[in-house]
């Protein structure tokens, strides 16, 4: 594939081929790096029985932006793999909770560092690893552990994905990415773990050679599709916290 072919004109086109049953990782953490535009396009595209990987199931903030919770409400999700399947504040009820409690959607609850490392392992060609995290907890019940140098570790498997949806600050046409500040979070490891990486890009996509090779966070080798986010209101940008609080 020629490098110029990575630039795609619309979000709908960039995700048109996603089949029912696909596994998709969604970048983002507390806002920055979240692929709102790709998620909105997926809501319209309608693929079903998806397995969705993200830090949270979404829906904790008002006004809501397109998130995993909306895909769940739209009947597109079979399973989520997340570090939160309940709100951080126990009195908050997530949109996801109703579907989980009724058994309509399955969930795998994974400690956040284990989630990141399972993605990293998948992207690094490592099938499994041992971690001290979650040893002695409900999550470790019935699972393989091993004592190494006197400490007990839990076996965790890599988490490969069919697609990753991420958001970046800058990209060049070769697919090289730069993230800005907290936007980075899970995005680079998800990009390595997925067969097809789709990126919504905040700034204009630059010609190859325009980005300093020393300042690339994700190599274009990991990236297949780039879409420039159009100006608001057509494109979804970051919501301000004070608007969330209303």
């Amino acid at each position: 594939m020629g490098r110029r072919n990575k630039i795609i004109g619309s979000f709908a086109e960039a995700i048109a081929d996603i089949p029912d049953g696909a596994t998709i990782a969604f970048g983002g953490f507390a806002g920055p790096g979240t692929p709102y535009n790709l998620t909105r396009a997926l809501l319209a595209q309608g693929a079903k029985r998806l397995t969705c990987i993200a830090n949270t199931t979404g829906g904790a903030h008002v006004p809501r932006m397109p998130d995993l919770g909306m895909l769940v409400e739209n009947g597109q999700v079979a399973k989520v793999i997340c570090a939160f399947t309940a709100a951080t504040r126990p009195t908050d009820v997530l949109p996801f909770t109703k579907y989980y409690d009724s058994g309509e959607v399955a969930a795998e609850l994974v400690p956040q560092g284990t989630l990141a490392e399972r993605l990293r392992a998948a992207g690094a060609g490592i099938p499994a690893f041992y971690t001290p995290t979650a040893v002695g907890t409900e999550l470790a019940e019935g699972r393989e552990t091993r004592v190494i140098d006197g400490r007990e570790y839990l076996l965790e498997y890599a988490l490969p994905c069919d697609y990753a949806f991420i958001r970046a600050w800058r990209a060049d046409e070769a697919g090289n990415l730069q993230f800005r500040l907290a936007q980075r979070n899970f995005c680079p490891v998800m990009a390595t773990a997925a067969k097809t990486v789709v990126v919504e890009v905040e700034e204009d996509i630059l010609p190859a050679g325009a980005l300093d090779p020393d300042q690339i966070h994700t190599s274009g080798i990991f990236v297949q599709r780039l879409v420039k986010i159009p100006p608001a209101p057509e494109g979804l940008w970051t919501i301000r916290r004070q608007e969330r609080a209303k």
């Binding site: 399947t85 951080t88 126990p90």
Partner: peptide
């Protein structure tokens, strides 16, 4: 990370931090 009777939980980074 989990309250009584809840099906879901909120682990976040707590288990990694607590263990390590």
């Amino acid at each position: 990370w989990k309250i009584g009777g809840a099906r879901g939980g909120g682990i976040g980074g707590a288990m990694d931090l607590a263990a390590c």
